[in-house]
Design a protein around this nucleic acid. Structure first.
Lengths: 212, 212, 212, 212
DNA sequence: AATGAATGAGTTTTCATTCAT
DNA sequence: TATGAATGAAAACTCATTCAT
């Protein structure tokens, strides 16, 4: 019976993965249930044994990815590193999702605002941004980050940068190999913390000098 | 006859504006042609007098907005201000689009990857990012911006931040009033140029110190 | 006022001729009212000043051609030539229609069974066949034609041969130039009266010999 | 599984037969997909399970009928009978189609020029006429048929006569019962081979006289 | 579990016809 | 007369979902 349920679980996974690939390729609305079934190598009727509807398939992909993402984000948030390390950790978590399950990320990125009810998802989106905001606020409290800038808006900037990089990879506009992802991780934190200004670069050095 | 053609132009506009509102409200795929017609107060058949298809309506909205946006972006790019002023100008142009035609921006932001063939649009997306990249490169040449960071990636970060702010307004997650928009404009340039680091804020001062 | 009405008549003709060309090219159902108007160089609304409907246009083309055709067929029927000459006359009348107004003939041939009510037209079709039948019956009475064959069926054979030849020209399967048409005229009468049998050819010669 | 596929085949047939009846009754353009479905006793969506479009249904009817017709025509062509017998065989094959599947023949006859691209069909029409032409040419070579008449044109006359008789039955202008069809078969060959001329009837006798 | 035939609501699109100008 | 914008009925086609096997 456990074996049974495992076999069923596997078939469910097969359909889910197939759906992620198809949605990633054609978008949710343009994908037909038959496309998913074909990609999964099953009859389209079978999909309704495992899911109530096409919508539920998207919801499931979204939920599974999103919850594990949030978990890892919260782990980073409550880790003991410096605020800078923690920001890098957030980017790392999100980029890692991309490297491991590019199709799923592609779908989540592209369909986030469309997956049935926008409002529900908006609440969800707030979560990673909230984590980023809290890290930044902590940084401000610690005196590491400037206090004249709104933490929420800064969090949006950081998250937006991550999102755009992933979108770049998703759309194939940007090379998304491991090296590029690692570079992006470094880059995004560097820009957001120290800024582009030539002085910002020196900022670190100066502090380093001081510590020396 | 000129009167006639003007009246026709106006009706075309009425339909286009109605479509923008409807698409903004329900998304492209969920909007029916009849919804657009109803919103415009015309029979649905009339839509086909002015446009070849529902798709063409979206394309038209997209094209009209995008081309005027690009024009203004290029004007900023070739203006005489400092690189920092020009970056602020880019953000200003994009935010202004939001304030003036929120529905259109909403549609463009949400449906960009759907507006027909992703590939074509990707090429389009490169354009504003390219303008930003060139401004940053100029900044690097002038010694105002650090040279150890890739200009292209930095441009993506900047553009992504803008995009996420607009998305925040679009989805109602963020207050989008005039003050908030003005603050965002200041904010985004501050973060990207000087960074969040407490030292970054004093970037200019530091340089002044050094030169002293 | 007469001038007015003449100008109106001309415009009506222009539309009718345009319609014949368009119907001939694309078939009745596949032709749009706009196609006819475009071909005629007028706005499509004008068509409704001269005709009640698209159907009426076809009816008019049909009626005009058909009535003049029937007139000429009846003239041939009541002429004083031999039965053979009269059969040739019938073929000549129909082929002449083709040479003079190929578009109209094409339409009549292709749409005859479809022009609104089939039943009405069937009655019409009987007319030329009836004329042919009467000529053949006369031939049988005169002893020129064999009596063991049903006159009505023979008339159908003769008419069908004419129809198929015109169809061949209409569909471009057969050269339809003046020489070909003249040859066809000779041919069809030869086959139907004397037959293909080698003896049939001699039949004429024999009779000729006898009369000599 | 074989049972399944057979059931599917049968349903396909049901739809095809229903379509033939509907097209025969109302014509292709005037028939709605819903009419076919209703006639077949299925939901209209099912039609698209078996055929790509309404057009494809017509194409299929046409192709199925036409290919079996051509097969039988070619069998007659290469049979060992006299040329006269073979001409009678051709007529017989075509008339038999009418007796067995009047609806299908009705559709093929009425919609032949519409079944998609005229050009393609013209090529098809040439085939039976070509077979007839070859039989006539053989007759000319054998000295059974006169050589002063063009074989191709004679074939058109013969085919046109057949076509018109079928059309007469299709349109209900002519009784189409078994006896009438048998009579027509005899009739058409008699006219085309021996002609209507009173002398033609004696063609054989005349030749006998001469040889005597 | 699995299949795929069957359903039918829903959508886009077409186009003959009307009508204000 | 003439135009072409405006209408809306009608039709083809799609596809998520159901269900008999």
């Amino acid at each position: 019976m456990a074996e049974r349920s495992t076999a069923a679980e596997e078939k469910r996974r097969v359909i889910l993965d197939a759906a992620a690939r198809v949605f990633a390729r054609k978008g949710f609305h343009t994908s037909r249930v038959g496309d998913i079934a074909e990609e999964a190598g099953v009859a389209h009727g079978l999909l309704y044994h495992y899911f109530a509807s096409k919508d539920e398939v998207l919801e499931t992909i979204f939920r599974e990815h999103w919850s594990s993402l949030l978990e890892r984000i919260h782990a980073v948030e409550s880790s003991s590193g410096s605020v800078e390390e923690r920001l890098r950790g957030i980017a790392s978590v999100m980029f890692e999702g991309w490297r491991r399950e590019p199709d799923v990320v592609r779908v989540v990125v592209r369909e986030i605002t469309r997956s049935s009810e926008v409002e529900e998802r908006v609440g969800e989106l707030v979560k990673p941004i909230g984590a980023i905001r809290r890290i930044i606020e902590r940084g401000q409290e610690e005196g590491v980050f400037r206090r004249d800038l709104d933490a929420d808006m800064s969090a949006i900037v950081f998250y937006g940068a991550i999102d755009e990089l992933i979108t770049g990879w998703v759309l194939g506009r940007l090379p998304g190999d491991d090296d590029a992802v690692a570079a992006a991780e470094h880059h995004i934190v560097a820009v957001v913390t120290s800024g582009l200004a030539a002085g910002g670069q020196r900022g670190k050095a100066l502090r380093a000098d001081v510590s020396a």
